[in-house]
Amino acid sequence: MRQWRGIWLRELGACFLSPIAYAMLALYLLLGSWTFWHAVQSHVGRAESLPSLLVLSAALWLPVLSALTTMRLFAEEKRQGTLEILMTAPVTEWQVVLGKYAGALSFVLLAMAPLFGMFFALCALAPAMPEPDVGALAGGALILALLASYCVAVGLFFSLLTRNQIVAAVGGFGGMVLPALGGHLLSYAPVGADRLIRLLAVEDHLMDFARGALDAKPAFLYVSAAALLLFFSSRALMLRRM
C-alpha cells in the first residue's frame, strides 16, 4: 500500500513540476471552456440542459488530455532506462501500474475541475440563467470521472507497449475514441445490434448522466474496461520482467 501510494504521489508531483503539464492543462481548459461558451451561445433561447453542455464540452477534449498525460508514463521511463531501476525496487507490477494510473487519473480529474468553476461563474454572471441543477451536475461529474478512468487506463496500456511517446499518444487516442466510433459505425450496419450500439453510445451516456439519470450499465462498462486494461498492463509489465 505504501509503495503504491508513493508511486502515485511521485507521478502526481512530477505532473505539477513539469511546465509542459501546465501548458497541456492550460490548453485543455482553453479548449474546454471555449467549446462550452460556444455551445451555450448556440443554445440561447432553446430548451437544453446546461450541465449536459458542460459535460459534452469537457468530454470532447478528454481523449486529447488523457493521451498527452499518459503517453510518458512508461514510454519515457523506457526511453530513459529508468523502468528497470523501478522494477528492481521491492514493488509488484500491480503496485507500479496502479500507482502510475492513480497519478495520471488524479491529474486528469484535477484538470477538469476548473471547468465546473466556469459553469458556476457563468450562472452567477448571467441573470436570466435558471438556478443550476446541482444533482444533474454531480451526475455529469460522475460520468466524466468514469470516462476519464477508462481513457487513462487505455493511455497507460499503450504507453507500456512502446518507448516512443508519440506512438503511445496516437495509439492511446485511437483506443479511447474507437469504441465510440465503432458504436456509431455499427449503427449503420444492417444488423440488429441495438444492445451493443446502446452500450457503446458514449454521447448518450454523457447526456443521461448530465441530466441526473444514472445508469449502472454504462458505469460498470467503464469501470470493467478500465480494470481489464490495468490487468493487461500489469501482465504486460510482468512479461517484461522475464
Binding site: 461558451w37 443554445h43 440561447v44 433561447g45 461563474a121 436570466a128 440563467m129 441543477d133
Partner: peptide, 21 residues
C-alpha cells in the same frame, strides 16, 4: 430548463473573458 443569459453586451464580453480565459 431553458438556456437564457439576459446579459448586456458589456456583461457578455466580461463573461466571455472570465469563462473562457
Amino acid at each position: 430548463e431553458r438556456i437564457e443569459l439576459g446579459m448586456t453586451r458589456d456583461r457578455m464580453r466580461q463573461a466571455f473573458l472570465i469563462v473562457v480565459f
